[in-house]
Deep mutational scan, measured.
Amino acid sequence: TEEYTYTDKEKADRAAKEWANRGYTVTVTQDGPTYRVRVG
């Protein structure tokens, strides 16, 4: 499991979509002003 942190919702959504397109399980959680994209 890897985790990426973004401050921009659009970038987080785009990253999540790209990982999902590659067949990974993706979870996006909002943590205050940041968005965490957990992959795998």
Rank of each mutant, 00 (worst) to 15 (best):
A20G: 08
T25Q: 12
E2M: 15
K17P: 02
D13M: 15
E2I: 15
K9V: 06
D13I: 14
K9W: 13
G32N: 01
R22W: 08
T7D: 13
D13V: 12
K11F: 08
V26P: 02
T5I: 15
Y6L: 01
D31V: 12
Y24W: 06
E2K: 15
D8A: 05
V28K: 02
T7F: 13
R14M: 12
V26F: 01
R14F: 10
K11W: 08
K17I: 11
T29M: 11
V39H: 02
A20P: 01
P33L: 09
Y4L: 06
G40A: 14
N21Q: 12
Y35I: 08
K9D: 03
T7Y: 13
T1H: 13
G40I: 14
Y35M: 03
V28P: 00
V39F: 04
A12D: 00
R22H: 12
T25V: 12
V39M: 03
A20Y: 11
G32F: 03
A15Q: 05
Q30H: 08
P33V: 07
V37Q: 00
V39Y: 02
T5F: 14
A15I: 07
K17W: 12
R36Q: 06
W19F: 12
V28M: 07
T27A: 07
D31I: 12
K11G: 10
T29D: 07
R14A: 14
K9Q: 07
R38T: 14
T34S: 10
T34N: 13
N21G: 12
V28N: 02
E10R: 09
A20E: 14
Y6A: 01
T27I: 11
T1S: 11
T27E: 11
W19P: 01
T34R: 09
V26N: 01
A16V: 06
R36G: 03
A16L: 05
W19E: 02
N21K: 14
Y4S: 04
Y6W: 03
A20K: 12
W19M: 06
A20T: 09
Q30R: 10
R22N: 12
R22D: 10
G32L: 02
V39W: 03
Y35E: 00
E10Q: 10
A15N: 04
G40T: 15
G40Q: 14
R14L: 12
T29E: 11
E18R: 09
G40H: 14
D13P: 00
T27F: 07
Y4T: 04
A20D: 05
W19L: 10
E10D: 13
Q30W: 06
Y35Q: 01
P33I: 07
V37L: 09
T5R: 08
R38H: 11
A12F: 02
D13N: 10
Y35T: 04
N21L: 11
E18D: 13
T1R: 09
T34I: 15
A15S: 06
D31K: 05
P33M: 08
D8Q: 06
Y24E: 03
K11E: 15
V37S: 00
Y4I: 05
E3Q: 06
G40E: 15
R36A: 05
P33H: 08
Q30N: 07
K17E: 15
A12P: 00
R22G: 09
E2W: 15
E2V: 15
A15L: 05
G40L: 13
T5M: 11
E2T: 15
K11P: 04
A20L: 14
E3L: 08
R22Y: 07
Y4A: 04
Y24I: 04
V28Q: 05
R22V: 06
V28I: 13
A12R: 02
G32K: 01
R38I: 14
A15K: 06
Q30G: 06
R36S: 07
A15D: 07
Y6N: 01
V26Q: 00
T27H: 09
R22K: 15
A16P: 00
Y35G: 00
R14E: 13
T1K: 08
Q30P: 05
V39D: 00
W19D: 02
R38F: 09
G40F: 13
R36K: 13
Y4G: 03
T25D: 11
V37Y: 00
E3I: 12
T7G: 08
R38D: 05
N21T: 10
K9T: 03
Y6I: 02
V39I: 11
A15F: 07
T1F: 15
T25I: 13
E2H: 15
R14K: 13
K9A: 08
G23V: 00
R36N: 06
G32Y: 03
T25R: 09
T34L: 15
A15H: 06
D8M: 05
T7S: 10
N21F: 06
N21I: 09
T7E: 10
T5L: 13
A16H: 03
V39A: 03
T7N: 11
D31R: 05
T25W: 12
V37D: 00
R14T: 11
V28W: 03
K17F: 11
E18I: 09
A15V: 10
A16Q: 04
V39T: 03
T27Q: 09
R36Y: 09
V28D: 00
E3G: 06
V28G: 00
E10G: 10
T34H: 13
R38W: 07
G23S: 02
T25F: 12
E18Q: 08
G23T: 00
Q30E: 08
Y35A: 02
T5A: 08
T34K: 09
Y24Q: 03
R14P: 01
D31A: 06
K11A: 15
K9P: 10
T25K: 10
T1P: 10
R14H: 11
E3V: 11
A12Q: 01
